[in-house]
């Protein structure tokens, strides 16, 4: 997986879970929850998507590290390294 493609792929997963969110409008440094009311169901669906997409099993205890696009990319980079 190309490191440069990672943010775009993650963003696609986010917008698949929240279809009413415009990909271009997502601010990487701000938590999904604060931007578009990402809730626990969304987070769970996001974790499922990451597992399916990247084969990364995110334990519940790591959910906090998926909060924003930047954090998520950093977390995935670490797990995929």
């Amino acid at each position: 997986m190309n490191r440069e493609q990672l943010p775009r792929r993650v963003l696609e997963l986010v917008t698949a879970i929240a279809p009413d969110v415009e990909a271009d409008s997502v601010i990487p440094g701000i938590a999904f929850r604060d931007q578009f009311d990402f809730d626990s169901m969304d987070t769970l669906n996001f974790a499922i998507a990451l597992q399916r997409e990247f084969g990364v099993d995110v334990p519940e205890t790591d959910y906090a590290r998926l909060a924003s696009l930047d954090q998520c990319v950093a977390y995935l980079a670490e797990r995929l390294a």
Binding site: M41, L44, A47, I48, Q51, D57, V58, E60, T61
Partner: peptide, 11 residues
């Protein structure tokens, strides 16, 4: 939730 696959986690 720690014991089951992510798809089987509960809220």
């Amino acid at each position: 939730n720690a014991a089951v696959p992510v798809t089987e986690r509960l809220l």
